[in-house]
Design a protein around this nucleic acid. Structure first.
Lengths: 312, 312
DNA sequence: GCGCGTTGAGAAAAGGTTTTCTCACTCGCA
DNA sequence: TGCGAGTGAGAAAACCTTTTCTCAACGCGC
């Protein structure tokens, strides 16, 4: 029984008697034969491996993205190298070099904010690169969540609940996502609707509410928050002031960060960016590129989804 | 210039004229030559790759462990496959098979609780396995945090702050970590010190405080919580009742889950399980095993660390 | 001057798989 | 019976490195 015959049998390749093929397959299964992926990759120039590069070590963004990538690729026999590079260019280079040495079929770059690049240059690499939830090179394949869409979903929901005096409390102006969400908020809520920019923290949500209630002007009855942490601060501050959520004021957050949104009292209605889906798409795209199938370059924005809980 | 000469030059192997070696190295650097790790692995039977298996997709435990593993191994040129298998045995088998096909040098299993195994059998694999923060087979190499030690650190701190009436609010009795922490709590605080078991949530922390304050018996002045979520619920409930933290009551949490502990008002003093360090150790151990260096099997418990913030 | 020892470089094999090519055998048809 | 077509199986090359072995040349000492 020659090596080549076995190989052909197992891969349904070449001409051979059906029973020989069956016999070989049966025997192979019996002794638990597993082809060596290294040898296979050496020949085919495919390692069935992709690298996932992130600077969001502890973040809640990368994790769902990773899960999606892994889920999409496992069906194609592709495994994922995870490389957390913090914000260290040297570490980034080391990891990219290691991935190239290991002949990854492609690289997916992801991060913690969509308007910053990773601290490592991925242009001109000999393998395809897809950017997911991080800033890509011009002319690259990039996937992002559609922040404007998410914000519109939220504001439309507030209006549908009959809320008239809408307010947006969000993060710093340096963040593109804050700006895009705020623009969509104004577009739907009306140009005069107030927007408060601060930091992405619970404390800021608290402070914003304190400020408004102390100022004593017109008080909002519908608040759209830039993320779930701010929303939590808002909800807590309202409760402490005796304002009922959602009876007196409806609140909607952003991120659907489960552990935060579900533990808030009441649980938060919030916008989910579908990051897992984003990861899945990114995985399929890098796979397509690796297999030589063309992917139109450019920025793709994936729609968001409103998760209804009790705060609105 | 033959292939073998180049190989020897680049690996500082074999006999050759020093200037030839230098010239080759220089040239190689110039054209950016990088040896193919697949071919190298085929020959050496080392892929410089390890698999990290986890069922804690979204968890805060796996992430620091991963970071530690990756950090320890990158120095040795080893990359990490991350495989999130949820609790699906079929998915687990697929990922393990994929890792074996890719000739990983070893596997690290990790998870979300130390007293449950992954839904996949890793015994009898042809590669070394290290268990980190998950239950290992008998006779395996297993690393865990020392819950008892962490609890002692916390209680000793409470006592040092002059607290006399200590209380422990923690998770369900089915969790070994809850039991071990409770035992250590009783050992240091005194056998009669009360322990309340509930679930691992903010709501439970809240409820426990409500219950005690309503009951109207002796009230605690030092509370050690089983995790940071419970601690947060406790701190919030105390504040809502007008009890000052840390002036009237000191509170200590467990996990040092940054985003939760730091955002609590006041920020939580809490026990850190040093999971990153645990991951680093696991990485070095699996590497040692892969290289044939022996590692004494058995359960190793790594010490915890108290992170002082404002709540105590 | 010759031989031996040393030094430097290249040839060859090995690692496991896939693919193409070749060859032998069989069967059918003339 | 002989020839051609078709079928099945194996041989060989290729992928890229590393390592061991071989061989040639040179220098030094006797």
């Amino acid at each position: 029984m020659s090596v080549s015959t076995v190989s052909k049998a197992l891969n349904d390749n070449g001409r051979m008697a059906a029973d020989t093929r069956e016999r070989i397959k049966h025997l192979a299964a019996e002794i638990g034969f597993r082809p060596n992926a290294l040898a296979r990759g050496l020949l085919s120039n495919r390692s069935f491996t992709v690298g996932l590069l992130t600077n969001d070590t502890y973040g809640r963004f990368t994790l769902p993205v990773m899960a999606g990538v892994s889920e999409a690729l496992v069906d194609h026999g592709v495994s994922v190298f995870l490389c957390a590079i913090e914000d260290d260019p040297a570490l980034g280079k080391i990891h990219v070099d290691a991935m190239l040495d290991k002949q990854v079929d492609g690289i997916i770059a992801t991060g913690k904010r969509v308007d910053r690049s990773l601290p490592v240059d991925l242009a001109g690499l000999p393998v395809p690169v897809v950017y997911a939830f991080t800033k890509g090179e011009p002319g690259s394949v990039t996937l992002t969540s559609d922040d404007g869409h998410g914000a519109r979903l939220a504001v439309e929901r507030l209006k549908k609940m009959g809320r008239k005096r809408l307010l947006h409390i969000t993060g710093p102006l340096e963040f593109t996502s804050a700006v895009e969400r705020a623009e969509a908020f104004r577009a739907v809520a009306g140009g005069g609707a107030p927007v408060l920019h601060g930091v992405w923290s619970e404390a800021w949500g608290h402070e914003a509410i304190d400020r408004i209630w102390i100022a004593g002007g017109e008080r909002p009855d519908g608040i759209f928050c830039g993320n779930d942490q701010i929303a939590r601060g808002v909800v807590d501050a309202l409760r402490e002031r005796g304002v009922r959520v959602p009876e007196d004021v409806s609140v909607i957050g952003f991120d659907n960060w489960e552990i935060m949104a579900a533990q808030t009292r009441p649980p938060l209605t919030t916008v989910d960016m579908n990051l897992k889906e984003l990861g899945r798409e990114a995985g399929l795209m890098v796979l397509a590129l690796a297999e030589g199938r063309p992917i139109e370059p450019g920025l793709r924005k994936l729609p968001c989804r409103l998760v209804i809980r009790d705060s609105c």
